[in-house]
């Protein structure tokens, strides 16, 4: 599992959400750590570079009688990326020799942005998408200004809204707290 070693990190995002802490503890306690690590190479097709672990949708990994069972929870109920993610999981696991893979979509517990990892939030910012926060305070991912305006409640995908920075005029997506 990736560890955060960025010293700036503790200043920008000081605490882990309980939901993410729980996921991390669950992963650390799992007996198939290697499979979790392989799945760190599966990305959300609409959020370049964001892994399904960091996004928070990868919920469980098990190996039963030579078959790998992966549980994923969708972000939004109509998320069109789910089928692609299923295929990508199977593809990455087959590369390392797991050919019997069952990917199950589970609705409960319902996904929330609180399940996202701090690394994931940092990554979103690096690709100029404002990461979710509980208060929906949207600051510009480019110049950090808090003076931003909502342009539309939906952005390029259902999980994002569209904003503009009043300081640097950048138009950017905010990953909605959900």
């Amino acid at each position: 599992m990736r560890q955060n070693i960025n010293p700036l990190f503790s200043e920008t995002i000081p605490t882990l959400s309980p939901e993410f802490a729980q996921r991390r503890a669950f992963r650390l306690a799992s007996s198939c750590g290697e499979i979790w690590d392989v799945l760190d190479r599966v990305f959300d097709p609409e959020l370049p570079g964001l892994t399904i672990w960091d996004l928070g949708i990868l919920q469980d990994v098990k190996e039963v009688d030579g078959q790998v069972q992966v549980v994923v929870t969708p972000t939004y109920s109509g998320c069109p990326a789910v089928d692609t993610i299923k295929q990508d999981i199977k593809k990455e696991l087959s590369v390392v020799g797991y050919n019997k893979v069952d990917v199950r979509i589970s609705l409960a517990p319902a996904w929330t942005t609180e399940m996202m990892s701090p690394d994931g939030k940092q990554h979103l910012k690096s690709i100029h998408i404002a990461p979710p926060n509980r208060e929906d305070n949207v600051s510009c991912p480019v110049c950090e200004s808090n003076q931003t305006t909502l342009l539309s409640q939906f952005g390029s995908t259902a999980c994002k809204s569209l904003h503009q920075c009043e300081s640097c005029s950048e138009v950017f997506d905010y990953f909605k707290h959900f």
Partner: peptide, 19 residues
């Protein structure tokens, strides 16, 4: 923007119907 918003709401309802 409104076009995108309405389409996204439609997508949420498709997801709900599928479930």
């Amino acid at each position: 923007e409104e076009d995108i918003a309405l389409s996204n709401v439609a997508l949420d309802y498709i997801g709900r119907a599928r479930m």
